[in-house]
Computed example of a mutant assay.
Amino acid sequence: MKHVQFTLLFIFLLLGLTANAQSKKKSGGGGGNGSSGYGTGIGLRGGGYSSGLTVKHFLGSKNGVALEALLTTEYKARGVRLTVLGEKHKAISDIKGLAFYYGAGFHAGSYQGRYYFADTRYYYKGRKGDVYLVRDYRFDEETYVAFGADLILGLEYKLEDLPFALSVDYKPFFDVFNGYTGFYNDAAVSLRFTF
């Protein structure tokens, strides 16, 4: 499996270097749309709650607005989630290729199995009335649908001579899961091949 990953990375690198060299010849400089330095990026996202694939595409030529789609799975969950985000990128003028971005979106997914508290019991022992709390954790195998809203805040760096963009983001989200609601904090690192 590692050989396949390294081979794919090597192929992406070669294709990117070739495409980057051709775009510099055609345009006389660095290609790409807007302040991002690229038009579309495809890659991997590794985070606390969700990890998977990421695709980011910039709309227009100079406005810095992008759509990002995430196809991810949650830690210890069997299922998948699709997240769509609208993002606004603002270039940081001191460092070429570095941009701050923020945005919002929504997600929907399906998961099999969940942990829950089935029972809470209290035990009293001794003359002093010591109290012991026991919670009974259970796991079920049913499939559940989840949906909710997301926010995102991050930093992205487009490598100047290579067709890659590296980003770090904080993505809190509100989730509705089988009648329960929750607010979760997620952070991730993404690496995208850009063209």
Results as ranks from 00 to 15, higher is better:
residue 44 L to G: 04
residue 119 D to Y: 06
residue 167 S to T: 10
residue 127 R to Q: 11
residue 125 K to Y: 13
residue 70 L to N: 11
residue 73 T to S: 13
residue 141 E to M: 10
residue 113 G to Q: 04
residue 25 K to S: 01
residue 15 L to E: 09
residue 58 F to K: 08
residue 121 R to N: 14
residue 38 Y to T: 02
residue 146 A to V: 06
residue 158 K to I: 07
residue 44 L to Y: 14
residue 158 K to G: 01
residue 171 K to H: 06
residue 54 T to Q: 12
residue 78 R to H: 12
residue 26 K to P: 00
residue 124 Y to K: 05
residue 18 T to Q: 03
residue 45 R to L: 13
residue 59 L to K: 09
residue 170 Y to S: 04
residue 91 A to G: 05
residue 15 L to S: 14
residue 186 D to T: 08
residue 30 G to M: 06
residue 7 T to L: 13
residue 162 L to N: 02
residue 65 V to Q: 10
residue 117 F to H: 06
residue 49 Y to F: 15
residue 9 L to D: 02
residue 160 E to N: 04
residue 81 R to D: 03
residue 160 E to R: 06
residue 145 V to M: 04
residue 74 E to D: 15
residue 173 F to W: 10
residue 182 G to Y: 05
residue 31 G to I: 06
residue 87 E to C: 01
residue 94 D to H: 10
residue 31 G to Q: 07
residue 124 Y to S: 13
residue 166 L to I: 13
residue 6 F to I: 13
residue 16 G to T: 09
residue 164 F to C: 01
residue 92 I to C: 07
residue 108 A to W: 04
residue 116 Y to N: 02
residue 61 S to E: 15
residue 173 F to S: 03
residue 176 V to Q: 08
residue 59 L to H: 01
residue 182 G to D: 07
residue 140 D to M: 08
residue 171 K to R: 15
residue 183 F to Y: 14
residue 77 A to T: 13
residue 3 H to C: 00
residue 76 K to H: 12
residue 167 S to L: 05
residue 54 T to K: 15
residue 104 A to F: 14
residue 75 Y to C: 02
residue 168 V to Q: 07
residue 112 Q to T: 15
residue 134 V to E: 05
residue 185 N to V: 07
residue 129 G to L: 11
residue 120 T to W: 01
residue 191 L to N: 02
residue 78 R to P: 00
residue 190 S to H: 03
residue 183 F to P: 02
residue 106 F to L: 11
residue 175 D to E: 14
residue 106 F to E: 01
residue 59 L to G: 01
residue 136 D to Y: 09
residue 152 I to V: 15
residue 156 E to M: 10
residue 30 G to N: 12
residue 6 F to R: 06
residue 161 D to N: 15
residue 118 A to T: 03
residue 153 L to T: 11
residue 129 G to D: 02
residue 10 F to T: 08
residue 26 K to M: 03
residue 20 N to D: 08
residue 131 V to D: 00
residue 65 V to M: 10
residue 151 L to E: 00
residue 29 G to Q: 09
residue 178 N to Q: 10
residue 2 K to S: 12
residue 171 K to T: 10
residue 188 A to I: 12
residue 142 E to C: 11
residue 150 D to R: 09
residue 109 G to Q: 05
residue 103 G to L: 04
residue 72 T to F: 00
residue 6 F to Q: 09
residue 124 Y to W: 03
residue 179 G to N: 04
residue 1 M to L: 13
residue 154 G to D: 07
residue 154 G to E: 07
residue 140 D to T: 07
residue 136 D to A: 03
residue 57 H to I: 00
residue 31 G to V: 00
residue 28 G to K: 12
residue 72 T to Q: 05
residue 100 F to Y: 15
residue 73 T to C: 10
residue 119 D to F: 06
residue 177 F to I: 04
residue 43 G to E: 12
residue 127 R to Y: 06
residue 49 Y to T: 04
residue 173 F to A: 00
residue 119 D to N: 15
residue 130 D to H: 12
residue 189 V to P: 00
residue 143 T to Y: 11
residue 59 L to S: 10
residue 61 S to Q: 13
residue 120 T to H: 15
residue 155 L to T: 02
residue 128 K to A: 11
residue 173 F to H: 12
residue 145 V to S: 03
residue 75 Y to T: 08
residue 87 E to M: 13
residue 8 L to E: 02
residue 101 Y to T: 02
